[in-house]
């Protein structure tokens, strides 16, 4: 009896173990099927390179180039802010301060990850957007730049935590070796620690980018939702995620528009799949050392 129960439970555990693979495959095939149907009716090159997203016009235009540019611009801006700040923060937390301060600072940084994206979007709307409008003297503060700033804050927890882990796991012998040769702590950090921790830091950056690319609510609230290709970072943009979130509710199931949104979902899926795959390779490289 005991043994039969054990076997049944072990079967259940095994099935749960395989669920994650099943879900990934299920999500992919679901997106793929809808997209495949879409590309039968709409040319895939026109989809990727088309400049205009007018799903309601006659004939409807489903070009996502402006959305790709929008996502790219917001992500790039966020990275330019978040990457240097995160690496420096990780260095400071891991190498400069004492252990107890380290725990407090790390918890504070992680706390930021718990703030819902709507709250961040709302704060961005209230605080940042008017500032941007006045400071840069642009017609609206709902710009790619505003999105980049808020998303940078959202990417920092991921980037800081994972690069801090990487920096922290640099063997102390490496550091002592350099210090014994008369290098200052800062020189050691710059030349030895950062170099050794590089794969982990790269993974941290990739995962942070993954989070930014997929972020929806914040960008929908503060980037202006204009599907034109912008000329600068101080113009409104629209990202792929925002289009799905904004338009999915209004589409009719099975319509071209519906399938087009799934195709955007597939593009997002593939982009984040790639980013995470690369991040995982970096992390694996770090572990093998």
């Amino acid at each position: 009896m005991r043994r039969i129960i054990d076997t049944i439970i072990e079967k259940v555990i095994f099935s749960c173990g395989t669920l994650s693979v099943i879900f990934v495959i299920l999500i992919f095939s679901f997106l793929f099927m809808e997209s495949f149907a879409f590309f039968k009716d709409f040319d895939i090159t026109k989809f990727v390179t088309g400049r205009y997203w007018y799903p309601d016009s006659e004939p409807a235009l489903f070009g996502i180039l402006s959305l790709i540019v929008g996502s790219f611009l917001v992500t790039l801006g966020a990275c330019l802010i978040a990457v240097p700040v995160s690496i420096m923060t990780a260095l400071y937390i891991s190498e400069v301060v004492s252990k107890s301060v380290r725990d407090v600072l790390k918890s504070l940084v992680e706390l930021m990850a718990a703030i819902p994206s709507v709250v961040i979007g709302f704060i961005g709307m209230i605080v940042l957007v008017p500032c941007v409008r006045k400071l840069f003297n642009v017609p609206t503060g709902l710009t790619a730049f505003s999105g980049s700033v808020m998303l940078a804050f959202m990417a920092m927890p991921t980037m800081v935590t994972i690069s801090e882990d990487a920096i922290h796991s640099v063997p102390w012998q490496y550091k002592e070796g350099a210090l014994a040769l008369g290098a200052t702590k800062w020189q050691t950090m710059r030349r030895i620690v950062l170099k050794t921790a590089r794969p982990g830091i790269m993974a941290a950056i990739m995962l942070g980018i993954g989070r930014v690319v997929g972020e929806t609510m914040t960008v929908m609230m503060i980037t202006g939702n204009s599907s034109r290709i912008p000329h600068s970072i101080f113009e409104p943009v629209r990202t792929m995620t925002a289009v799905i979130a904004a338009e999915m509710g209004e589409t009719v199931k099975g319509s071209m528009h519906y399938k087009a949104l799934f195709s955007i979902g597939l593009v997002l899926f593939l982009i984040t799949f790639l980013i995470n795959f690369v991040a995982d390779l970096f992390l694996g490289k770090n572990k093998n050392k």
Binding site: S20, G214, T216, G265, L268
Partner: peptide, 18 residues
């Protein structure tokens, strides 16, 4: 393991679509 990594990376709005 690869499935878990990628499931974790899928944007939340794509989960919404799915």
């Amino acid at each position: 393991k690869l499935g878990i990594v990628n499931l974790a990376g899928i944007p939340s709005v794509v989960y919404g679509l799915f």
